[in-house]
Simulated assay, not measured.
Amino acid sequence: MPPFASELNHKNRGFTLVELIIVIVLLALTGLFVFNYLGFGAQIFRDTTERDQLVSQSRFALNRLTSELRNAVPRSVRVRAADNQRCLEFMPILASSQYVRMPRPGPPSVSNVPFTAIEPTSLTNLVGGYLLVYATTTQHIYGNSTQRRKEVTGISTPSNNLVEITYTPSTFFVTDSPVRRYYIGGDPVSWCYDEINHNLFRFAGYGRLNNQPTLADLKASAATSAEVMAENIYNDLNNSEFPFRVYEATLYRNSLIQLDWRFRRANAQEPLEILHEVAIPNVP
């Protein structure tokens, strides 16, 4: 046989079955490794994104509620123990300043005078609000008694920097504020935790009620607007994980509102607990 024939047969020889199986196994192992590596990286990216979204939404809700509470009428914040403290209600301040004179019980010279006050920063949307003078309890603010709460019906400006406020019922106020301060509050607002859907809602537009409305009452009210402020909250109300706590003001400290929210991703057991306190100045 010529020398070149043996060399030609060697070049035309294919792979054996064993070699093919080895190559296939090696490729499979390599592909599996690469796939797991990419999948692990995608899982890290997804977890990081979800954690960032959870922190962002919790920070938004916390900052929003803190800002609203700091603009709440003093002593107007309340929770309802019978409803597992799932709802926090307060009355926002529309305007505030000091009064010069107001109707008081006594002779006509003090009981028939108009309510004259220093003009607040803004006079917009004050008609229909609640005029409050030395309202030191939630009953003064929300209750049926109108001795310290009136409804504003009109505002006039008889002179520079002074306003006269008319209200209903047109009766006198029973007591003065120590610093002659008055507030005009708006319709109450409620923040509620829905443990079934794991959401935090903000309700408005339902008006002033003597008894604090429950979550069921607010959901059933046709006059109520509801906004979802946060998701993925998993407070266990049966285990006293109340989302809202209110500590009333005393002679030695301001009102204190404690927010206790337990966030968790829906597909992971990674709790994010937020414990935050908001102080409301005790200046009725």
Results as ranks from 00 to 15, higher is better:
residue 37 Y to I: 05
residue 37 Y to M: 07
residue 39 G to N: 13
residue 39 G to E: 09
residue 39 G to F: 11
residue 39 G to S: 11
residue 40 F to E: 11
residue 40 F to D: 13
residue 42 A to G: 06
residue 44 I to D: 05
residue 44 I to R: 09
residue 46 R to W: 08
residue 46 R to N: 14
residue 46 R to S: 15
residue 47 D to L: 09
residue 47 D to K: 06
residue 48 T to F: 00
residue 48 T to K: 07
residue 49 T to L: 15
residue 49 T to E: 11
residue 49 T to P: 03
residue 50 E to F: 09
residue 50 E to G: 03
residue 51 R to S: 09
residue 53 Q to R: 15
residue 53 Q to E: 14
residue 53 Q to P: 01
residue 54 L to K: 01
residue 55 V to T: 12
residue 55 V to P: 02
residue 55 V to F: 08
residue 57 Q to C: 00
residue 58 S to H: 04
residue 58 S to C: 03
residue 59 R to Y: 05
residue 59 R to G: 02
residue 59 R to D: 08
residue 60 F to M: 09
residue 60 F to R: 11
residue 61 A to D: 02
residue 61 A to N: 03
residue 63 N to L: 13
residue 65 L to E: 05
residue 65 L to A: 01
residue 65 L to Q: 04
residue 66 T to Q: 10
residue 66 T to G: 04
residue 67 S to H: 11
residue 67 S to Y: 13
residue 69 L to Y: 06
residue 71 N to M: 12
residue 71 N to R: 11
residue 71 N to S: 14
residue 71 N to I: 06
residue 72 A to Q: 01
residue 73 V to C: 00
residue 74 P to K: 01
residue 74 P to E: 01
residue 75 R to K: 09
residue 75 R to P: 00
residue 76 S to N: 06
residue 76 S to W: 05
residue 78 R to N: 05
residue 80 R to K: 13
residue 80 R to F: 08
